[in-house]
């Protein structure tokens, strides 16, 4: 069996974003393996630990993505493939390029993040499934293989959740609760440096163009009320919400 994770590298949610020339400037931002992709990597490693076979991580993105791929290798993935491309690419275009690699690898299943923490896109997993002609299970919180042909999974819907049986190969996207990712160990990090990381330059044309980005933070009133006298403070807050904000 072969288990494959598709990952991306994104800004750490804690870092401060800046806009330069109408676009987000990432030059001074700490970049990390996307948290939702980290769940995907962890699940792929667990499936390999349980069922044997091989694990592969694939990414489509600029040179800097190599760090995120090394993190996945340090966590325990066997080898990595990096499609190197600069700039914004819409999920449909990403899926087209990634599907070629996935088809050639012919894994038992593919796991990727439920939502990207930079482009806030949820479409990559399902678009990749469509490109491959495979079923998709999005927002997965639990997955178990039933032999080599099927998997049973639990995943979130708009309201509530459901348990499904899905024929393999299939694409799964991750959701909180799926697992608790391991930290890379020092020996793991050392080993990752020697693991195979294949780079393939690709040239792609995005269907969607980003015209302009801005940080429109709502100006907040930041009015503070001392809570030493809880009754007076509560009364004042309710008054402000009623008379000033007019929201209750």
């Amino acid at each position: 069996m072969k288990f494959l994770a598709v990952i991306r590298q994104v800004p750490d949610g804690e870092s401060r974003l800046r806009i330069e020339g109408g676009k987000v400037d990432l030059s001074s931002v700490t970049m990390i393996l996307d948290q939702m992709d980290e769940w995907a990597v962890e699940e792929v490693i667990r499936l390999q630990e349980k069922h044997g076979g091989e694990s592969v991580v694939v990414a489509l993105g600029p040179e800097r993505f190599e760090d995120a791929l090394r993190t996945a290798l340090a966590m325990g993935i066997d080898r990595a493939i990096h499609l190197v491309a600069e700039g914004y690419l819409d999920p449909i275009t990403q899926a087209e390029a990634l599907a070629e690699v996935v088809r050639a690898e012919a894994p038992t299943l593919v796991f990727t993040g439920g939502q990207q923490a930079d482009w806030d896109a949820q479409a990559l997993g399902p678009a990749l499934a469509e490109a491959l002609g495979w079923p998709v299970v999005s927002w997965t919180t639990q997955v178990e293989l039933e032999g080599e042909t099927h998997a049973k999974a639990r995943h979130d819907l708009d309201e509530g959740a459901e348990v499904v049986r899905v024929p393999l190969p299939a694409v799964f996207t991750s959701q909180q609760g799926l697992n608790e990712p391991r930290y890379p160990t020092l020996p793991g990090i050392m080993k990752a440096k020697r693991k195979e990381l294949k780079k393939v330059p690709v040239s792609l044309q995005s269907r969607v163009e980003i015209l302009e980005q801005a940080i429109q933070e709502r100006a907040r009133l930041n009015r503070m009320i001392d809570g030493k006298d809880p009754a007076a403070a509560a009364h004042e807050l309710v008054r402000l919400l009623r008379e000033e904000a007019k929201v209750i």
């Binding site: 809570g227 403070a233 509560a234």
Partner: peptide, 23 residues
């Protein structure tokens, strides 16, 4: 508090019942 319009610095166990009373 950095993104709040109104903030009460206080113990929620006292402020919450007071808010219910005030409403």
């Amino acid at each position: 508090f950095k993104i709040a319009d109104y903030g009460i610095v206080g113990d929620v166990h006292q402020v919450l019942p007071a808010l219910i009373e005030a409403v």
